[in-house]
Amino acid sequence: MSRYLFDNSAPQASGRFSALETCYDPVSRRQLELTGLAPGWRCLEVGGGGGSLGDWLGERVGPDGEVTITDIDPRWAEHGPQRPPHVRLLRHDIVTDPLPHDTYDLIHARLVLLHLPERLRVLDRLVTALRPGGRLLLEEFDCGWTPVLAAPDEASAALFERVEAALHSQVEKAGADPLWGRRVLGAMAGAGLTDLTATTYAESWPGGGPGIALHGVNIKQTADRLRADGITDPELTAFQALLQDPTFVVNSYPLISAHGRRPHPEATPR
């Protein structure tokens, strides 16, 4: 059984991947380019979801490079376009399955470690999988800052905040860290990476738009858990209706893109 709150086998997974790809793939591509990504690189895309970023990496590294897209449940990426031989899709659990050492020029994971109780151990594994000089790009949400920017009335704003708070409580109960985004760069420093930088991206999400739909699919998938925490069916119905109201606007989940480099070992003294 998946330990993720947002199990990829659920029917809502497709809508979640669509919202994430629409809103955040352009951001992730820009951040990946900043790593120096070039033809011939060996890349690992962890938690590849629908496979969009892994396929884009394959285009950038070309036939002389190599891209491995992994996911604990790769079914959504399996239905993507025919992939060239240098791009492969692998069912893989980043917590427990083998991972080669000193191999990759670039490793990227978006919204993966946030959900893993073993996130610090997984970070160490990713660092070890980099070749010396290789780059790690982790992109994570800071779910602690999603203010309502506009609402038809105070009750609507309060409803959104109540339901979101209940969702974040469920995220924590599942072993995830909703504030991992603000901690990730420090964790990467603790794992021995150097040349560290971080960029934060956020935008407004109006009702009826592709971004705010992420809230809708997440609430649908966790509705039973939210009811157990006291959220009522009328509140859930009103919440979903609010997400379709163009006068209701929230701040997106801030995406923190953290870069680091595995240092070369010091030269052995003669």
Rank of each mutant, 00 (worst) to 15 (best):
P81W: 06
A258V: 07
L123C: 05
A158K: 03
V67K: 03
L149W: 02
A165C: 01
E139R: 05
E59D: 15
G133D: 05
T70D: 05
P11I: 12
N8A: 15
Y104R: 11
L243E: 04
V112G: 07
R225G: 12
A109G: 13
Q244A: 12
H92P: 05
L242I: 01
A10K: 14
A238L: 03
G175R: 08
P254M: 03
G15P: 05
H215T: 11
D7Q: 14
V87R: 01
L242E: 01
Q221R: 08
H86R: 14
D93M: 09
C43V: 14
L114A: 12
G58R: 13
G216A: 15
V67S: 01
T103R: 07
G190Q: 11
A158G: 00
Q170W: 01
G192D: 02
S14C: 14
S9H: 15
H92T: 07
D102F: 00
V249N: 06
D71A: 05
A187M: 12
R75C: 08
E140Y: 01
D124C: 07
A109Y: 05
P246Q: 12
A267L: 04
T200N: 02
G186E: 14
S9L: 15
S9P: 11
H168P: 00
R91A: 13
Q221P: 03
H215G: 07
E59Y: 15
A258K: 06
T222L: 02
G208E: 13
N251Y: 02
I107N: 03
M1F: 15
T268W: 14
V122S: 06
S9T: 15
P178C: 03
L137A: 10
P246T: 11
P210K: 12
E164P: 00
A258Y: 03
F160I: 05
T68Q: 09
R261D: 04
S18A: 15
E33M: 13
P117E: 08
A267M: 03
D93G: 11
Q240T: 10
V184C: 09
A129L: 02
D55F: 11
S52E: 08
V163T: 00
Q31S: 11
R225C: 10
P26G: 08
L114K: 02
A109N: 08
A13K: 06
C43I: 12
A189G: 07
L236K: 07
G230K: 04
P11E: 11
N8I: 13
H92A: 08
G58Q: 13
S2P: 15
D153E: 08
I219P: 04
P265H: 13
D71E: 11
A166R: 02
E118N: 09
R182D: 03
R88F: 01
R131N: 02
T197G: 07
P11H: 10
D224Y: 05
D245Y: 01
T237P: 01
S156T: 07
L185G: 00
H79N: 14
G50F: 00
T103M: 04
V61C: 12
Q82A: 14
M1A: 15
R110P: 06
Q82K: 14
A174K: 08
T96K: 12
S52L: 08
Y24Q: 06
L179V: 05
Q31A: 14
G133M: 04
R16S: 03
L111P: 01
L90V: 14
L116E: 04
A267Y: 00
P100D: 03
